[in-house]
């Protein structure tokens, strides 16, 4: 599959919530963006879709760190996903997509594939 990507503005800085997540629509499907002001970098983006419950809920999980790894816990069955790689800490055969994200002025930019990848939407 082609990996052509583009940076796209998905929301404003005032939409973010410190130490927590929000969800945005992207051509790659729903993405969860987390803002952890105490971490460097402070922004993380992973898929919003939870493969354990098949629901779009990841942005509503609790964030934190386990053994130094920044993580989010799925709000449904509580598995932890690395915010850097998307890998599930309880079962490393499961991985949710992770995206590059950065702040440009007051815009949050996300690097997403150009084509609509349907499996990410599920």
């Amino acid at each position: 599959m082609s990996t052509k990507t583009q940076w796209q503005a998905v929301c404003k800085v005032e939409d973010l919530i410190a130490d927590s997540g929000i969800a945005v629509w992207t051509p790659a499907g729903p993405v969860a963006i987390f803002y952890l002001p105490q971490q460097i970098p402070a922004l993380f983006a992973v898929g919003h879709f939870d493969p354990f419950s098949n629901a779009n809920v990841i942005a509503r999980g609790i964030t934190g760190d386990l053994g130094g790894e920044p993580v989010v816990a799925s709000p449904i069955y509580k598995q932890h996903f690395s915010l850097r790689t998307g890998v599930c800490l309880e079962d490393d055969s499961v991985r949710i997509p992770s995206y590059s994200v950065l702040l440009d002025g007051d815009s949050v930019l996300l690097e997403v594939p150009v084509e609509n990848r349907s499996e990410a939407v599920a």
């Binding site: 919530i17 969800a23 629901a55």
Partner: peptide
Amino acid sequence: KRFREFVNDERKDPVQ
């Protein structure tokens, strides 16, 4: 504001 499903779009959740 916290209760927006997607902050950049009013569309409903597609998997429900």
